[in-house]
Amino acid sequence: MPAERSGRRVLPWARRSAFSLPLLSLARPAQAAMLDLRWRDEVTPLELAALDAGPRQTLTTHTPWTSGPQQFEGTALRLVLPLAATASPRLLVAALDDHRADIPMADVTEHGLFLAWRRNAALMPVRDRGPFWLVYPWADHPTLDRPEFHCRSVWQVRAIQLG
């Protein structure tokens, strides 16, 4: 199990792709396309390159900030969280610009909260809401198309804290 290092939890699908976790380095340059998952005092950095090399799902939806349907590629957030972590009541999402949002876990487990890193086929740069953007399947579930969900759709995601 090459991905297993110092007993760190391995992401369900990451095990399938030949993806190995990089060594924990907190002093990394702020711009590296990475997303920190924090759970039970552990930090699991997800590297964009590694995620992108794995299997990707597609979500086509409109958003309140763009015109026309957008094709997002990424993964349902549920799939990158450790299975046991979905028992936490909520997630705290932090963005590069220090924006923070508090999201109930139900959005992940029931409403299909989606972690996108490609929009209309291209990777998203920071200046275009990248590298990670949390979107909801608004097109398929119009009941989610409400301001309370809009403000949980965080872009430029830097870290996700569980629990």
Partner: peptide
């Protein structure tokens, strides 16, 4: 980049 993003977002969709 963050500033750039905010300026781009002024497009307003």
């Amino acid at each position: 980049d963050l500033l750039w993003g905010r300026i781009n977002q002024l497009d307003g969709g």
